[in-house]
Each structure stands twice: as C-alpha cells, then as structure tokens.
Write a protein that binds this DNA or RNA. Structure first.
Lengths: 246, 246
DNA sequence: CGTAACCTTGATTAAGATCAATTCTCGTGG
DNA sequence: CCACGAGAATTGATCTTAATCAAGGTTACG
C-alpha cells in the first residue's frame, strides 16, 4: 500500500496541521514494513525518531534479567510511540546520545510504520506552535494511561485487572462504532482479542497459566464466556462492580 | 516567607522564561500553605490548575476501595505536579469539566505551594513557544519515570525495588552535591529518608511489615545499615548488582 | 510520664508463580 | 485429505512471595 501526505491527517497528533505542514513532515519521514514478531527497536539502542502506526500493531515491553516480559503498551493504527526521547533532552538528542527507553516488536503480519526522524522534526517544531500543544495533549493522555496502569498493577488483583481490561476493550469498540457508523447500532457485548493470550497475560502483569485460570473462574461465575479469541460479556454490571468502575 | 516572581526561575519548567513572562505567570498565580497530612486535592475533584512546590513535600497517591494506598510520586521543591488535566483536553478544561486524576497530600509541616490556575495559563501558553517545549520535556521526563515505575512494579521483587530506591536516592544526592558545592566532595554513601517508612512502603508497592523485614534481610546480608531514618550503604557494588543496574 | 504514632517481629494465610504434563489449533507438506 | 509438528492454551500439583493478623517494642512529644 502506498501512502500520501494527506494520510497523516488521520493521526490525531497531526490532525490540526495544514497541507503545507503535513508535506514538510512527510518529506523527511519514511515508511518501514515489519513481519510478525520482528523487532522494531531494542531498549538502549540509539534513538532515530518516533513512529506512527499505519497498519498492524506494536507491543512496547520491558524484559527482566531472568527473561520475564512485561508489556507496557500495545499501539494500534494512528497511535504514535517513542516520542519521549525526542523531547526529553534536546541537547542529548543532537549529540546523538538519546536512546530508546523500551523494546518494540511488531505483533501483526504486515505492520507498517512511519518513522519520523527526530532531529529534522524538532528543528521544525518551533514553527508549529499548534503541533506543540497537540503533543502536550498526546503526552498528557499517555501519562494518564500510565498512571492508571500503575494503579492497576499496585492495587488490583488479577481478576480485577482482567475485568478492567475487558471493560476498556468494550469502551474502545463503542468509540469505533460511533465513528464508523452513522446509524444507531446496538452496542455489542463481545469482542475479539487482537493478540495472543500470552501477550494479554504480559499486559496484565501475569503469566499465561494464571490468566487461563482467571478466565475459567470468571466463566464459572457467569461473568463472561470465552471461545478462542472471542470474549462475550454475560453480566456487565457484575463485571463493572468487580472492576470497581460502577 | 514571601516569594517574588524571580523565584520562579528556580523551577526548571520556568527557567527559560524572561522577567516579563515570569511576571505575567506570577500575576495570576497564588501561594497556598499546608500542614503535614493536609489534603491538597482529591481524585475527581474539579481541576483548578497545576502546582509548584516551594517548600516541603507532597505525595501523589491512589487509594483502592479497600483503603490500600499506593504512592505514585513524591514531589520535592521546584517540582511541578498535576499539569496533565491542563493539557489533556483544552475544551474540557474551559467547560470546567476537568478533574484531578489523583490524590495529593502535604508530607511536611510547612508545605508551601504555588497554584498556577490553568485557564489563564493556557491562554498565555500560545505566546510562549519555549515554555511549550519546556513542558514537553518535563512531561517526557515524567513519562520516563512512570515507565520505570511500571517496570519496577511488574518485574522486580520487593528486595530489588528497595535496592533500586536506595540507589536512586544516592543519585539525587550526588546531583545536589554537584549543584551546591564547587569544591570536590567525597560522595557520601548514606542518606536520610525524607518521609516515613510507611510512605516508603507505599511508594514501593508493599506494606510496612514487609518493608521492615526486607530492611532486616539486607542488613543481615551486609548490604546496608539502617539507623532510624538513616540508611548507610555498606556494599555498593552488591547493591547495584541486586538492583540489576551494574 | 503517658499516650499516640511509628516500627519490628512472629505465625499464619492467600495469591500467584513455577514446574510438568496434556490437549488444542492451525498451517504445511506429503 | 490426512498426518505431522509447532506454537498456543489448559489443567493440576507444588512452591514462593508477600499480605494479613496479632502482639509487643520504640520514639517523640505534650
């Protein structure tokens, strides 16, 4: 698939920019294609720039010395990631001392990303005050997500974490429905996992065996039903109360 | 104590601003004093603006329904906090729908904060492109800290978390020494806890009993020595290797 | 000197990780 | 079309870590 500068408009980060500004950013950026399981960058690798997902999905994850993996984020189309080293310390960036702070791996078969090289981008950024504000908003949202991730890890057990995850997926689906259809559709109480249960376990800060047992418990309690990758919500209000979101 | 506009210069966030800009921000901001244990704001409370610590310390924390508390951040002089709702969604902000995302409590007896009201601030922000970039850098650093917090919670046991905390305190001390003294001083291998062990436990995602036991174990292994609030490092390299930072 | 907050220590329990054995699923090639 | 094998997922038994419960000790401070 061939993309053009206008496609950048779908990226929330760039949605406020005019055609000319988009062309500038597009001119020094380039597309990269990855296969499932392919590494995009490793932690501590020299920083080139930030990425924007066009197709597929990307997991951002940390690995402990013993090899245990924890997924911090899963990025979907039009999400941007790895902006932090671009802004954190501009001097460091221009001295080529910035590094990626995390590992990134493609999750889907054709994962297509736009790489926006940081140095030309930062050089242009001063000219686009609106883009600055947009970035502030994007980073603020990211901070909020990370805060809630910390809350989840430190205060909730696995069952509650899973309940929260299921409800958040439902929310995303609701939003997507609103965008894609103009007629009123009944909100579906089911969704498909878009990645393996292994990755879901890692996202929830646990391991696959524990996740499997937790799914079983929640099925026994008639909260949900699991068929392969499909999750069907059977008792929404009980799920909300379990997740402490009612 | 009486502060003037120039004092804002010590705040990294405002360090690049000129006198006139500082005066503007100072003109619509105001100081607030808190006693130890006093609440600064609760989660979900309507958002007024962000804070800047002048004196004392502030803990930012989440509380679970069962009453368990987890400290996400401890803010010290010249740190700013609660900027996120100002940037996250400007429309929401001006419709008075923004709320604080976390709880904040003063930790020290006289805690003095500057409250910068968000609406006038955002109105002015467009005129200060450098301040935007400074905020991007501040939020990026915060993101990095939160990422490492998540890594710590999900991949390290309590002993490793404590080792990491001790080493990070040593780093902060090293930095402060560099700033405050122009002669070369030997780097001290001890420091004072600046808050209670109860709060330290909560910061590390555990409870005070477990923290107490962990301190004892680390003393038995001759890694550190604990005398009240004073922590003395006895074996730095072993501590680094435990924290996986060597 | 007395009380409250802070901290330590021990015994017990519970959540979740680890280890190990199967089973399920799906893509590939014969 | 079936067989094979690899990766994904389930299940059970056991172990480890850290939380909970309970009691006592220390410190700070009016």
């Amino acid at each position: 698939m061939k993309y053009i500068a206008e496609d950048l408009k779908f990226v929330p980060l760039f949605s406020q920019l005019d055609q000319e500004q988009l062309e500038i950013i597009f001119s020094f950026s380039h597309f990269k294609k990855y296969n499932k399981g392919e590494i995009i960058f490793f932690e501590t690798e020299p920083y080139a720039g930030f990425y924007c997902v066009y197709e597929g999905a990307v997991k951002l994850y940390k690995v402990s010395r013993e090899g245990r993996e924890h997924i911090v984020h899963i990025m979907c189309p039009y999400d941007t990631f790895a902006e932090v080293p671009a802004f954190e310390n501009v001097d460091k960036l221009f001295q080529n001392e910035a590094v990626y702070p995390i590992n990134a791996m493609a999750l889907d078969q054709p994962t297509e990303l736009l790489l926006v090289p940081a140095k030309p981008f930062i050089t242009h950024l001063r000219k686009f005050p609106d883009l600055c504000l947009q970035f502030l908003s994007t980073l603020s949202k990211r901070l909020k997500i990370l805060n809630s991730h910390i809350e989840t890890l430190s205060l909730f057990d696995i069952k509650k974490r899973l309940a929260r995850y299921i409800l958040s997926e439902l929310e995303i689906q609701k939003k997507n429905l609103k965008i894609s259809s103009n007629r009123i559709e009944p909100i579906s109480l089911s969704f498909e996992l878009s990645f393996s249960k292994y990755d879901l376990a890692s996202l929830l800060g646990t391991i696959i065996e524990t996740l499997s047992r937790t799914f079983r418990k929640m099925q026994e309690e008639k909260l949900i039903e699991v068929e392969g990758k499909k999750i069907i919500i059977k008792n929404l209000s009980a799920l909300k109360s379990l997740a402490e979101l009612d």
